[in-house]
Amino acid sequence: MRKLNLTLKVWRQKDDKGKGKFETYKLNNVSEESSFLEMMDILNEDLATKKIDPVAFDHDCREGICGTCSMVINGKPHGPLQTTTCQLHMRSFSDGDTITVEPFRAGAFPVLKDLVVDRSAFDRIIQAGGYVSVNTGVSVDANEIPIPKDIADEAMDSATCIGCGACVAACKNASAMLFVSAKVSQFTLLPQGQPERHRRVQKMVAQMDEEGFGACTNTGACSAVCPKEISLTNIARLNREYLTAKVTAQEV
């Protein structure tokens, strides 16, 4: 099993007001089987024994599904592979490497401390319309709404978004179009989403703008880093939906 000696340049920032800067740390003998976050754990144990404040970072499931982990590694959201930070393993690095670790950067994602950012803007976009308005207690049997398999599968592909925000961090305009379009697509594809279709897209896009996310200029940087491979066709669908909604001029 390979062991790696590494130089880490890590963004340190005391709080949301402070100005941050890079600190350099040496870390030796890291097993290539460790995950990237386990490497960060080792760093933090090392700092703690030296009574230095450990590096704050967000993480929870460590299985690539909760969307909590969020680091820019060597300039790329989630690092060299198209996966989540927690699913990146040290075998993707070489002995002697210098690795730069920063928080996701976007105006709408303010840094709270070190590598931790505030992504609550995403929640507010969902609150604006990312749902089907049904209350608990519907009594329609689930199989009364047959949905062709290919449609269901496509909706699932969109619904698979984990809301990590890498798309925003990768985009030079910090646009949230991939995130918003994935949710809009899921409900546009499914029969359950039809009644609120026009209203939903307008409200979600309005909220997205209000949060200060930038415009989409179709460079595709978002999809290229998306750990769940949410495709650009979602954005095309969102644009179509938004236009139709405007044309039908339903008030929201």
Binding site: V134, G137, A142, D153
Partner: peptide, 22 residues
């Protein structure tokens, strides 16, 4: 049984057969 009905109504994309059923 009510749970499945509820989730489908919310737009949860459960796996389906070619015939469109769950």
């Amino acid at each position: 049984v009510n749970i499945i009905d509820q989730c489908v109504a919310q737009g949860v994309p459960f796996a389906r057969e070619y015939g469109g059923l769950l």
